[in-house]
Design a binder for these strands. Structure first.
Lengths: 186, 205
DNA sequence: GCTTTAAAAAGTAACTT
DNA sequence: AAGTTACTTTTTAAAGC
């Protein structure tokens, strides 16, 4: 039997940082190829990196959000590319800007089908949200770790809201033991 | 002292006006959906609770009124789908669904997922199908649900497929188009659910 | 509250071929 | 009827309306 923890896969990492310098996004948009900037629609400039694949949202304040990376290492690599691109435009970028991971999205597989109706009632209707007319997943909010899990009938799940990769492992452990306690697994 | 009292009266009056408008809207929507008076009263009780707990802030009266009517129908066992209530509301489906989830959570309504069987009598009646078809559709829903087919599926699509299958089995065939029209789901959804259900039932044809 | 970005899960819908 | 695209849910930062 496969340990559900071994099926955990990081799908997206969101992080924030800053170059410590204000930016003229209009001129950055002119000089940076591939940059999307439409201040009427959104105050941030969008710049996409190819390897690793990610999207950086660059703001007038010099703060940057990076999303779409598949690991924390990829976030650092993507942002290193963004920093270098800005330096090429003669923009001062701090030596090693602090990068803070804000959210990690993970997927996993419990390996067996789930009776979401029974789980909704078993875990307590006041703690979960399950509205198959609106979305096929059951929404389960955990207090520790503080993450949100989306459980599907196939046994696959999504864990989001965590800040460390371990958060997803702890969440999977708790979910598995709670479902086992209720006799809703296997 | 006087100021506080005036504010209380003003708030109370605003609340009364709010409630009056909500109740007239609920009545209008309920009438066009042929929802019984007893269900409208349940909807009004929920709305009053939402008003008392200050859940209307930042939301439209119409949106909350539509959501409470949707919730009341489910509570009373005669659900209307979100598309059905959205058709008589001036609030869009997505907003009704969001508001419903918020109100249900905040008021601890502890709503259970809708059992597709709850749609069988009304849909079958609109399709002029016999009691025999209804019994068969309910059986299909019970058996396939027991086999785990219901998880994650929309109750309307699930009921529609069972009714379509039952109409075939009872020689009272309705087309997928006819069933999709009353259930407000696409023929593709009926086809997909139907295939799963007859396979789980061990029916070949 | 909204706007934008990414990503997974699975269901439903709206198109075109 | 099949295929594609797109939308539903959740999370999170950023700046501005």
């Amino acid at each position: 039997m496969t340990d559900p923890k071994d099926t955990i896969n990081i799908e997206n990492v969101v992080a924030s940082t800053g170059i410590g310098q204000e930016l003229d996004l209009q001129s950055v948009a002119m000089d940076l190829e591939g940059a999307d900037y439409d201040p009427e629609q959104f105050p941030g400039l969008v710049y996409r990196t190819q390897n690793p694949k990610s999207a950086a949202l660059i703001f007038r304040s010099g703060k940057i959000v990076c999303t779409g990376a598949k690991s924390t290492d990829d976030v650092h690599e993507s942002l290193r590319i963004v920093f270098d691109k800005l330096r090429e435009l003669q923009i001062q970028v701090n030596e090693d800007p602090e990068i803070v991971v804000q959210n990690i999205v993970t997927s996993a597989d419990l390996g067996r089908n789930l009776n979401l109706n029974a789980i909704a009632i078993g875990l307590g209707l006041e703690n979960i949200e399950y509205e198959p007319e609106q979305f096929p997943g059951l929404v389960y909010r955990l207090d520790d770790p503080e993450v949100v899990a989306l459980l599907f009938g196939s046994g696959k799940l999504v864990i989001t809201g965590g800040k460390k990769p371990e958060d997803a492992e702890h969440a999977v452990d708790k979910i598995v033991s709670r479902l086992e306690d209720l006799g809703l697994l296997e | 002292r006087l100021r506080k009292w005036q504010e209380r009266i003003r708030t109370k009056d605003a609340g009364e006006r709010n409630l009056q408008f909500a109740l007239s809207e609920t009545d209008r929507m309920a009438s066009s959906l042929a929802i019984p008076r007893s269900v409208r009263e349940v909807a009004c009780v929920i709305y009053r609770r939402a008003l008392d707990e200050d859940l209307i802030r930042g939301r439209s009266i119409e949106g909350v009124a539509t959501s409470t009517l949707y919730a009341a129908c489910r509570m009373e066992g005669i659900p209307r789908s979100l598309e059905e209530v959205a058709a008589v509301s001036r609030v869009e489906r997505k907003e009704i669904g969001r508001t419903y989830r918020y109100v249900a959570q905040e008021l601890n309504l502890e709503m259970e997922p809708v059992n597709p069987k709850k749609y069988v009598p009304r849909f079958c009646s609109e399709l002029e199908l016999s009691e025999e078809v209804q019994v068969k559709a309910n059986e299909i829903i019970d058996v396939t649900t027991e086999k785990g087919l219901l998880s994650g599926k929309s109750p309307t699509g699930y009921a529609a497929a069972a009714i379509y299958a039952a109409s075939l089995l009872c020689n009272e065939k309705k087309t997928q188009r006819e069933v999709s029209d009353v259930a407000q789901v696409t023929e593709v959804t009926i086809r997909n659910r139907y295939q799963e259900q007859i396979e789980a039932m061990g029916i070949h044809e």
